[in-house]
Design a protein around this nucleic acid. Structure first.
Length: 514
RNA sequence: GCGGAAGUAGCUCAAUUGGUAGAGCUCCAGCCUUCCAAGCUGGAGGUUGCGGGUUCGAGACCCGUCUUCCGCUCCA
């Protein structure tokens, strides 16, 4: 480990990503876009390799999982059914003194809860005072309780009307009228209520009068749910089975930061596993384990991963956990495993009017399947790999090197091929080796500068092997192959290079450990 | 969104109280021929994030704006 401070460590990783063609700020010549990044020549390769590792581990390695590629545009009703139109619309309000931001609806709900507490206290007090206490009678007759109850109903009705009418000024007025104070500053110095719609919307249709509002999908999962029956029927899928998908999703985050950790445009890799109701917890446990193992096989360090079980569950889930990874800025969510019950399919049944059931021949009955979801952010995964792989080493003799210890199967280039010197026919032989290997492997060629410099350049982009052609190569058709991590060399026959690279750098080397 | 810090070459950073924008590394073309970044010669690369203002003169001072980092907040 280096002695670099954590915040510098993260900065260095970001700089390294830019300097070596992994990640650039988007539209940088126009000053960039907040929280939008572009993948460069090496980043695109690494990202593609991670995606492929995921896809093959899901689709190719499981006979009962198939992949789809749904459109980003979906029928607007999809998002009503999924709950995103409502749940993704948060009215927010700031307190000008404490500078804290709150969800306006939460403030009002908490205020209502406080009044309910008061009712309960009245009931408790009365219960102590009277024998043969009739709670229901007390609640329906006590003047003070009735007054509280009336207040609650008034507030709830006002709030409901305000939200339905999208009247944000009225929402603020409710907060003012209820004399709600900021718990921190204790003041009522509120800003206006503002609506943050976390879904991006756009217009479909070229003529504005005929155009309708569509959303850029905030998750890929719904593309799977709306196609669940198509895939089940045409693929003759038998429960339990899964549908996998990778693709872009979009969220208009209020605050999007920490490099590519939270972006407004990002790529998800999701798999929805359809199971018989009642068996979902077994499958939830199965995928929880399987997914952690998938991460561990990357070899970036077992201590960098941990589970985080959700206590507060989303509206659709009956169990949920995250796999967290230790990023330079702490343990953060990398992947989510959720038992989503039959919520989504039931919702789509209701909104579409189509039956989304499965006939189970073993049970001889039809049902809406339960769903266990695994959902991982590809960009986060990229950052987890990059930040774990980045090392600043101090070598014997005091000089330093920056090396990306990428898993060889994920590295953009599997090998670099060098002539030791740029004459005596060495470049010609090196280029011939290159030409032979490139049908099967991503390889690169370099003849500039001393060979030591070239090794370091490859270390910096994470190339696991460097193949050097020297004078001996011309005589006995052997070359040296130099290992990135140990910097050790061995001499091998040119004819063996292809199979060596296949054995060490193909995805099979990872998939076979699952 | 609020508070703090910052923005000068591809990267890391200089530039005295306001007085001609520089260095190292990288990169490119050669020379040299050596298995772990360090030899030699030459070269490219900047309206100092952007826009105003003060001044004889602004990289520096003032205002606005954009972007990034840290903290708060948010994350179905």
């Amino acid at each position: 480990m280096s002695s670099v401070k954590p915040e510098d460590h993260f900065k260095n990783i970001i700089s390294h990503c830019k300097e070596y063609g992994y990640i650039f700020p988007s539209s940088e010549i126009y000053d960039g876009m907040s929280a939008v990044y572009d993948y460069g020549q090496n980043g695109a390769e690494l990202k593609k390799n991670i995606r492929e590792y995921w896809w093959k581990s899901m689709v190719q390695m499981h006979e009962n999982i198939v992949g789809i590629d749904a459109a980003i545009f979906m029928h607007p009703t999809t998002w009503k059914a999924s709950g995103h139109v409502d749940a993704f619309n948060d009215p927010l309000i700031d307190n000008k003194d404490s500078k804290k931001r709150y969800r306006a609806d939460v403030l009002i709900e908490e205020h209502v809860a406080k009044i309910e507490d008061k009712i309960n206290k009245e009931v408790e007090k009365a219960a102590k005072r009277f024998e043969n206490f009739d709670v229901a009678m007390f609640r329906s007759t006590n003047a003070r309780v009735l007054e509280y109850q009336k207040k609650i109903e008034e507030i709830n009705a006002r709030f409901k009307n305000a939200m339905e009418a999208n009247d944000l000024a009225e929402v603020r007025q409710i907060i003012v009228d209820c004399e709600i104070v900021d718990p921190i500053s204790g003041t009522r110095n509120w800003t206006d209520v503002r609506q943050f719609n976390l879904m991006f919307s756009t217009q479909l249709g070229s003529v504005s009068e005929e155009a309708s509002t569509v959303y850029l999908r905030p998750e890929t999962a719904q593309g799977i749910f709306v196609n669940y029956l198509n895939v089940q029927k045409t693929g003759r899928m038998k429960i339990p089975f899964g549908i996998a998908q990778t693709g872009k999703a979009f969220r208009n985050e209020i605050v999007a930061r920490q490099f590519i950790f939270r972006m407004r445009e990002f790529e998800q890799m999701e798999m929805q596993f359809f199971v018989r109701p009642g068996t979902e917890m077994e499958w939830y446990e199965y995928w929880k384990k399987a997914r952690l193992n998938w991460h561990l096989v990357l070899g970036l360090g077992a201590d960098k991963y941990r589970y985080h079980d959700h206590i507060k569950l989303a509206h659709y889930a009956n169990a949920a956990c995250d796999i967290e990874h230790q990023f330079p800025f702490g343990f953060k969510e990398l992947e989510g495993i959720h038992s989503r019950t039959d919520f989504d399919l039931k919702q789509h049944e209701q909104y579409s009017g189509k039956k989304l059931q499965y006939f189970d021949p073993e049970l001889n009955q039809s049902y809406v399947p339960y769903v266990v979801e695994t959902s991982v952010g590809l960009d986060r995964l990229f950052l987890s790999v990059m930040s774990s792989a980045y090392k600043e080493e101090v070598l014997e003799g005091g000089d330093t090197r920056v090396v990306l210890g990428l898993p060889p199967a994920l590295a953009p280039f599997k090998a670099a091929i060098f002539p030791l010197i740029k004459k005596d026919g060495l470049p010609e032989l090196a280029e011939k080796i290159m030409t032979d290997l490139k049908f099967d492997h991503m390889v690169t060629y370099d003849e500039k500068d001393t060979v030591g410099k070239r090794y370091r350049r490859q270390d910096a982009i994470g190339t696991p092997y460097c193949i050097t052609v020297d004078h001996q190569s011309l005589e006995d058709q052997t070359v040296t192959i130099r290992h990135r991590d140990s910097m050790e060399q061995e001499r091998v026959a040119i004819s063996q290079l292809n199979s060596i690279l296949t054995a060490k750098t193909s995805l099979k080397s990872l998939l076979s450990q699952l």
